[in-house]
Amino acid sequence: MYFLWYLLIGLVAGWIANLIMKGSGSGLLINLIVGLVGGLLGGWLVSLFGWVPTGTIGTLIASVIGAVVLLWIVSLFTRHKTVKNS
């Protein structure tokens, strides 16, 4: 049962992070992956500041923080298309 709960939190965290970072709507699977990896990254990052996320809201906040950081790091390495005005 907890596995399904973590998937749901990861999906919501990935979706919220995608909205915060002004993503192009990556889709359900990508949002889930970003949210789950972001949850691991976020848990590690907030523990560096001495905060241990507890409960659903704390876990969601840490996951969103990690997912936003993950999307920011990915954006540093991906090429953005520029539009030329003629």
Rank of each mutant, 00 (worst) to 15 (best):
L60T: 04
V83A: 14
L70P: 08
G58N: 03
L4F: 13
V46Y: 05
M1S: 13
I57A: 14
W72Y: 14
L71H: 03
F49M: 10
N31P: 05
L45Q: 08
G23I: 03
G55I: 09
K22T: 01
S75W: 01
G50K: 10
N85E: 14
S26N: 08
W15L: 14
V52G: 06
T78W: 08
F3V: 13
G35F: 08
L60A: 05
A67I: 10
R79M: 12
L8D: 03
I9Q: 08
Y2W: 06
G58K: 07
W44H: 05
S86T: 12
L4V: 09
L36F: 09
S86R: 12
H80R: 15
L76V: 06
S47M: 10
T54A: 14
V37M: 11
S63A: 15
S26T: 07
F77P: 08
Y6H: 10
W51R: 10
A13I: 00
L60N: 04
L19R: 13
G43N: 13
G66A: 07
L70I: 10
V83P: 08
T78G: 04
I9W: 04
I65R: 06
N18F: 02
G23L: 01
S24Y: 08
T54K: 15
N85K: 14
I20H: 02
W51F: 15
L60Y: 03
S75F: 04
V52E: 12
V46L: 13
V37L: 15
L28D: 04
N18I: 00
K84L: 13
V64L: 08
F3C: 00
V52C: 00
L8Q: 03
I9S: 04
V64S: 06
A67W: 11
W51G: 00
V34K: 10
